[in-house]
């Protein structure tokens, strides 16, 4: 079961991942991603019905910290690396939509 990503699918993924991608780039990206997916496709073919997924190598549970304050960063440090600052806040260009 070969996997063939279309450049439309790639553009969709690029939008999801917030990566600007030109039309030509999307074609080559589609080719590369398809090649990788084809290689890992063996995984899809494995019959692993009875095997539960592992999301984490550790079997720890309930790791909790006490509700005790710790020092915050100085605001100068918080804003030091910011590309744009206004009025003690991080400035961004206009936002086109409400948060989902």
């Amino acid at each position: 079961m070969a996997v063939e990503l279309s450049s439309e699918e790639v553009l969709h993924v690029a939008r999801l991942a917030r990566l600007e991608l030109g039309a030509e780039e999307s074609t080559s990206a589609a080719r590369q991603l398809s090649a990788i997916l084809e290689h890992v496709d063996a995984v899809r073919a494995l019959d692993l019905g009875g095997i539960p997924p592992t999301s984490h190598p550790l079997e720890l549970v309930n790791v909790l910290r006490d509700d005790v304050e710790r020092p915050c960063l100085d605001r100068a440090d918080v804003l030091a690396g910011a590309p744009a600052v206004e009025d003690g806040r991080f400035a961004v260009p206009r936002i086109l939509g409400e948060a989902p």
Partner: peptide
């Protein structure tokens, strides 16, 4: 209509 936004975390 806003031209920019400021974020406080």
């Amino acid at each position: 209509g806003a031209d920019r936004s400021l974020v406080d975390y």
